[in-house]
Design a protein around this nucleic acid. Structure first.
Length: 109
DNA sequence: CCATTGACTTAAG
DNA sequence: CCTTAAGCCAATG
């Protein structure tokens, strides 16, 4: 059974360490470019007790908009920093450079 | 069933 | 980059 949410979890789990992606990219990969909010919803549901690296998912500007949903406000930035990703003012530095697009990385041409 | 909300995105100014 | 407005869709009240 592959629900939208399950698919989200799967993709997020595939994000390489030290890389990040966006809600929109995931939504688009799943076939619903306009359902970025649902990706956020999925993560919100899973935020409570899950093994999913939700901290690697940010909005299109590379901003940690979901940090407040973590146990600690600094947890999200903290984890990203631990993966060698620079975070300043809740924003990923060189976001384009760390950006991991499931459409490009997971799609077989 | 209708209204509101939200870890979003895009377009226009 | 910032603000509005609109679109989006599941969950919640």
């Amino acid at each position: 059974m592959e629900s939208f949410f399950q698919n989200v979890y799967q993709v997020v789990n595939l994000i390489p360490k030290g890389r990040v992606t966006t809600y929109g990219a995931i939504a688009k990969y799943l076939g619903s470019p306009k359902s970025a909010r649902m990706v956020g919803w999925a993560l919100n549901k899973v935020a409570i007790g899950s093994k999913i690296p939700a901290h690697r998912v940010v909005n299109r500007k590379g901003i940690l908009t979901g940090k407040k949903h973590f146990s600690a406000l600094s947890e999200m930035a903290n984890k990203l920093t631990s993966e060698k990703i620079e975070i300043i003012e809740d924003q990923v530095i060189d976001f384009e450079k760390y950006f991991w697009d499931p459409i490009k990385e997971l799609t077989v041409y």
